[in-house]
Amino acid sequence: MTKRIHVAVGVIINDNNEILLAKRPEHLHQGGKWEFPGGKVEAGETVTQALARELEEEVALEVKATKPFMELSFDYPDKQVLLDIHTVTAFAGDARGLEGQQIAWVPRNELTNYDFPEANKAILEKLLRH
């Protein structure tokens, strides 16, 4: 049995009510699909600390405030993840893909036009209900 990977995920909403998405590099698990930015929670980190670190490293945003959105576990055939999803309610900086990844600010009602990993489907459903 493989270890469940704890991932901090950010639903980042700008002043235009658009949500930031990042495209996973092709060589990674679920490569080529769009996702909400974030990354692994390291030992000794809180979810909020991990999210702030990951968003600064990946998309050049400084997180000012977050609030819990939802938590879900998902099992892929080759990997298990625990997604700790937070809404980023305040941030500074201009988003850009620091790891060469494509990013996009997407209106909420257009999220369904993007191809997401299976684990993200529940996040999309909840976002579209709000």
Rank of each mutant, 00 (worst) to 15 (best):
I19W: 05
K79Y: 08
L128V: 01
P77K: 09
E45Y: 12
K23E: 14
A50M: 07
G44W: 02
R129L: 13
K23M: 10
A104N: 01
R24H: 00
G10E: 09
L128D: 03
P68D: 11
E42C: 02
L28W: 03
M1L: 10
F74H: 15
I12V: 15
T89C: 13
F36G: 01
F91Q: 04
E18D: 07
I5Y: 07
K67L: 14
F116R: 01
P77N: 03
A8P: 05
M70Q: 15
T89M: 11
P68M: 09
L20N: 02
I5C: 05
E56M: 12
G32K: 00
L128T: 02
G31P: 00
F91I: 07
K40N: 09
E58Q: 15
L98F: 03
A60D: 14
F69M: 13
M70A: 05
D84A: 11
D115P: 00
L127W: 10
V41L: 14
L61H: 04
N14C: 04
D115L: 07
E125M: 05
E99P: 00
A95H: 06
I5W: 11
I5D: 02
Q49C: 02
L72Q: 15
L111N: 05
G38R: 08
Q101H: 14
P25Q: 10
F36Q: 02
E56V: 02
K3T: 13
E18G: 00
R4T: 15
L98G: 02
E57H: 13
Q102M: 12
A65D: 15
I13P: 01
E45N: 08
G31R: 02
V7F: 13
K121D: 01
A92R: 11
R108C: 02
R53H: 14
D94N: 11
H86W: 15
I85Q: 10
P68S: 15
M1A: 14
A22I: 12
R24L: 14
V47Q: 09
N17I: 00
F91E: 03
E99F: 14
Q30S: 06
L51E: 07
A8K: 08
E26F: 09
A122N: 08
Q101F: 04
A22M: 13
P117G: 01
R4D: 01
I13W: 03
I123N: 10
R96Q: 14
V59G: 09
S73W: 10
L82W: 13
L20D: 01
R4K: 14
A122H: 10
N120Y: 15
A8Y: 08
P107T: 03
L61Y: 04
I85H: 10
